[in-house]
Write a protein that binds this DNA or RNA. Structure first.
Length: 566
DNA sequence: GCCGTTTTCGGCCCGACTGTTTTCAGTCG
């Protein structure tokens, strides 16, 4: 059990207690324990019972529950609550717009015990008739359920890569295959993956199938499988898996085909290149050799989406896409000044250790009270600490930033003189996420027009597989960023990956700079930049158009010039 | 249930917003 698992168990317990109308302060204590554990750096596993009980928000009782969680992955109160609650009702708790109180009403009054039953109740107008509910609430619940059903069994790229690698390892461990590689959506680095695909080079597939029988991780679907293909799902994650096989000499061709969107192959055919038949009918050492034979530039898997191919062909070669090694600094990060886990100094030193030249710290602004957003005097304190640290860390540098909330009317939540005290301002929406396209677009446009806005943070507010972002007129947003010289971030958190990569080409066309920002709330969060780089590559992003791939002096000059205009 | 004490019980993180109300509960970040 990791800290995260324990936090999840406490949050679930709090929700279930609320669902069962328990003492509100008992509920609060679970929430409070979870909240405090979120701020904890060191793993609970391995701490002594006394140390655990000494933590903020953790008393004797919570310490015992943590011990039970580590032993049995649960504890009696949670077990009891779960037996009293139908699984479908527990699932309802994670629907957007539904909290424990509303779920309780639905469960008690309408006797609905599954998402399906709730959906039917919405469609029969039963929900709107309940006290405290209405037409709008009913419609938003209906949409939430449909969203949840659409996304069942899908994975974030981060999870897909980890699981696909596990499957790859277990196939290698059988000793039956010569080579196994990840293919499909995972290899193309799509932000959401609905099937894991792997390709194995093997002369006798039946040997492999034999080795996979009764494997704990894989459940075979006999009717969908065949002599050369294994189909089924992961036992734990309920994700579809396809293991395809080919003869070793066919590997490059099959891998290419399996790692391309249909639109890519169709584009090749439509533009008069026999890519598919070349790949199918010949032994090649590599995918590059196949592209060459088909008289095409060697498209990396990220670009095989049927989107940028024509542009690449016109230019005659694939641009050198952004790589992790190109990044020189890390912007948009949080520290313990707001809701981060590590101190400013820890964040800075770790960033320096990783070999970066600069760190942009941008804690939450004062409106984000839930996240400990910075009042003006805290901004001042942080700037003084940054000045001190910069003296000892030089030539490494901490840039003074803020993640300023974009309020409902599009204004930022500090006075101009405070905004002027930062090296850079990331403007982001965190509240009032349900606006329609016209209002949401106007709101962002106003924030972009603010002369102190350096960078637009996670433009749509989406959480992949969890909630849709608000709708935006992206052309107008990107046009405005071009006009006002505002950078757009690709928020690299695998749950966000926002700006969507499909809009990167238009941003590049308009000359808008992109920044790959991890939105790190702890040191380990820097690693997420990898996913941001994946998204940038899918959109054809290169190092020269990536703000944080610029060296410190160039970044500082750019920021200073921009601020002097403000 | 936890905490901080005025050691034996009272107080507990917060502001905005939405949709429902007709003054506010529930949800969210």
């Amino acid at each position: 059990m990791t800290n995260r698992d324990i936090i999840r168990a406490f949050k679930l317990t709090a929700s279930l207690l609320e669902l069962h109308a328990a003492n509100p302060f008992k509920i609060r204590s679970y929430q409070n324990a979870a909240l405090n554990l979120e701020r904890l750096e060191q793993p609970l596993l391995g701490m002594t019972p006394d140390e655990v009980a000494g933590l903020e928000g953790i008393g004797k009782g919570m310490a015992e529950r943590i011990a039970r969680l580590e032993e049995t992955e649960s504890f009696p109160e949670l077990d009891e609550l779960l037996t009293q609650t139908p699984p479908g009702v527990v699932k309802m708790l994670s629907l957007k717009g539904l909290g424990p109180k509303k779920v309780r009403t639905l469960w008690q009054s309408l006797k609905v015990e599954s998402e399906q039953a709730l959906l039917e109740a919405c469609e029969n107008d039963q929900v709107a008739a309940l006290k405290g509910f209405g037409k709008k609430t009913q419609e938003s619940i209906r949409e939430s359920i449909l969203f949840s059903m659409r996304n069942a069994g899908k994975l974030h790229l981060s999870a897909a890569e980890a699981l696909a690698e596990q499957v790859r390892q277990l196939l290698l461990d059988t000793g039956a295959v010569q080579r196994v590689e990840i293919a499909g959506q995972t290899r193309r680095k799509l932000e959401i993956v609905d099937q894991l695909e792997l390709l194995a080079a093997i002369e006798q597939p039946s040997v492999l199938w034999k080795a996979l029988e009764n494997h704990v991780m894989l459940a075979k679907d006999e009717s969908a499988s065949g002599p050369f293909v294994w189909r089924g799902h992961l036992t734990e994650a309920d994700v579809p898996v396809a293991i395809l096989t080919c003869r070793p000499e066919e590997f490059a061709g099959e891998w290419l085909l399996l790692s391309s969107a249909d639109a890519h192959l169709q584009w090749a055919a439509a533009s008069g290149h026999a890519l598919v038949s070349v790949a199918r009918n010949g032994a090649f050492a590599s995918e590059e050799a196949i592209y060459q034979e088909a008289a095409l530039p060697a498209f990396p898997p990220e670009l095989r989406e049927g989107m940028l191919e024509a542009q690449v062909l016109e230019q005659g070669e694939v641009p050198r896409l952004l790589e992790m090694a190109d990044l020189k600094g890390i912007l948009h990060n949080h520290s313990t000044y707001s809701d981060g886990k590590h101190t400013l100094e820890e964040m800075a030193r770790y960033c320096q250790e990783l070999g970066y030249q600069y760190l942009g710290i941008s804690d939450h602004s004062k409106t984000a009270a839930y996240a400990g957003g910075l009042q003006e005097f805290r901004v001042q304190q942080q700037h003084e600490e940054i000045d001190r640290l910069n003296k000892t860390l030089a030539p490494f540098k901490i840039l003074k930033g803020i993640e300023s909330d974009i309020l409902g009317d599009g204004s930022l939540d500090y006075a101009d003189d405070v905004l002027a005290s930062f090296d850079f301002v990331v403007a982001s929406v965190h509240s009032n996420l349900g606006m329609d396209q016209a209002h949401a677009t106007d709101r962002l446009l106003r924030a972009i027009e603010n002369p102190y806005t350096t960078m637009l943070g996670h433009p749509t507010g989406r959480l992949l597989l969890r909630r849709e972002g608000y709708p935006l007129d992206f052309r107008r947003i990107i046009d405005a960023c071009a006009e006002h010289n505002v950078i757009i971030e690709i928020n690299a958190n695998p749950w966000r990956l926002d700006l969507d990569w499909r809009w990167v080409p238009y941003a590049l066309e308009k000359g808008v700079l992109i920044s790959i920002n991890p939105d790190a709330h702890e040191k380990a969060g820097y690693a997420d930049m990898y996913y941001g780089v994946c998204m940038g590559r899918k959109g054809g992003l290169t190092a020269d158009k990536t703000f944080n791939a610029w060296p410190l002096d160039k970044v500082e000059t750019w920021l200073q010039k921009r601020r002097s205009k403000a």
